[in-house]
Every structure is written in structure tokens, then in C-alpha cells.
């Protein structure tokens, strides 16, 4: 998240819990680990619906389309199409009350990103979602590594809300914006 824009999750939880757990020394400046736990608790309680969104556990994995697109180029349309999506279970589409191919806002403890919700290409179950590895997925991947060096690429909780009007940013623009750098475009691919 760019400094100054608080995580939308801040409003989701009682303030004290949130502040206690979000101490930088524990998990890094923006990885508000508590929200993960709180989300987890809510999930265990059987309440996956939150406001007009749902809470799902997200995994990020490689895919052949993404692999091919990496070779074509990370600024290509193919890469955009392959990676700027989130796969949901059919059941979850019903709970969310949206059709397939609608844009959604995905929020984790680490950040927020707009993605296109599509039907599962490889079987999921309700409550499990998949984002192909790439810049879009990484916006929401928490960076806490449990002292192994490996962040939580699989199995972190996210809130998914319908956002049909929101726009999905291109990879380079997204990275620049989130990093607080000015995006000036590039003759090599613009």
C-alpha cells in the first residue's frame, strides 16, 4: 500500500486488536497479521460472508498460460490476461451474487487489488480461491516468512467484494503506483 492510504481492513476489526498486532517489529510495516487471524476466526465460526463480500483462503500457483506469457513478455496482453484474474468456486459466485467475469476487489492483510473473477479452471472448493502468480497476486501476498524466507504465497485470507466499475491496472502501472513512483510510460511497450 502506498503510504497514506490505510488498508480498508482497518474498518473491519475492533481498533485495539488491530493496532496491537500490527506492530512493525512483529511482521513488517504493512503486514497486519492480526487481520489474518481475525479473518480466520470469523471463517472458523462459519461466517464467510462479510458485508457484501466473502472471505476466502487464497492460493497463488503457476499456470501454463502464465508460463507461456512470461516468455512472450511480462508487458504483453497475454500476461495480463493470464495473471490479472482470481478463480472462484461456483458456490462462491452465488454467495457473492455476481456473474463470472465480473471485476472484484481483493483485500488481504497486505493490500488491495482489483482483479477479474473467473470460474475455476482447475477444481476448487467453496472458500478456496486461486490467483496465478504474478504482480497482481503479489499485492495481496503477506510478506511474513515464519523465519524461513518464504512468504505466505498459499493459504492467506482475503476479503472479496464485487467491484464491477473498478478498473484492472496494467502490471507496470500497478507496480509504479503502489511503489509510489511516477509512471511515465515506456516507448518499449506503450
Amino acid at each position: 500500500m502506498t503510504a497514506g492510504t490505510p488498508s480498508p481492513l482497518v474498518n473491519l476489526f475492533e481498533k485495539e486488536d488491530f493496532e496491537d498486532w500490527s506492530k512493525p517489529h512483529l511482521v513488517g510495516a504493512t503486514t497486519e497479521y492480526s487481520s489474518l487471524l481475525t479473518l480466520q476466526a470469523k471463517k472458523e465460526g462459519g461466517e464467510r460472508k462479510y458485508g457484501n463480500g466473502i472471505i476466502v483462503s487464497v492460493v497463488t500457483c503457476t499456470e501454463i498460460k502464465q508460463g507461456v506469457a512470461i516468455e512472450t513478455g511480462k508487458t504483453s496482453q497475454g500476461y495480463f490476461d493470464a495473471c490479472s484474474v482470481i478463480e472462484l468456486d461456483d458456490e462462491d459466485f452465488k454467495t457473492l451474487g455476481i456473474n463470472k467475469n465480473t471485476n472484484v476487489r481483493v483485500t488481504s492483510a497486505a493490500g488491495t487489488v482489483v482483479l477479474k473473477a473467473i470460474g475455476a479452471r482447475q477444481g476448487l472448493y467453496p472458500g478456496l480461491a486461486h490467483i496465478p502468480m504474478g504482480p497482481w497476486a503479489n499485492i495481496v501476498v503477506p510478506s511474513y516468512t515464519y523465519s524461513t524466507g518464504e512468504p505466505c504465497f498459499c493459504g492467506f485470507d482475503c476479503l472479496i467484494e464485487p467491484a464491477p466499475e473498478a478498473k484492472i491496472e496494467s502490471a507496470v502501472k500497478l507496480m509504479h503506483e503502489k511503489c509510489g513512483l511516477e509512471y511515465v510510460g515506456d516507448p518499449h511497450y506503450d
Partner: peptide, 17 residues
């Protein structure tokens, strides 16, 4: 390797600065 495409964003942001 592509650090910026495969690291959690919090790490990437540091690398960009």
C-alpha cells in the same frame, strides 16, 4: 530472475526505492 514480479509487494516496494 524477476524479483518485482514474484516477491510480495512489500519487498518489491523497498527494492524500487
Amino acid at each position: 530472475s524477476d524479483l518485482a514480479a514474484h516477491f510480495p509487494f512489500e519487498a518489491t516496494r523497498r527494492m524500487a526505492h
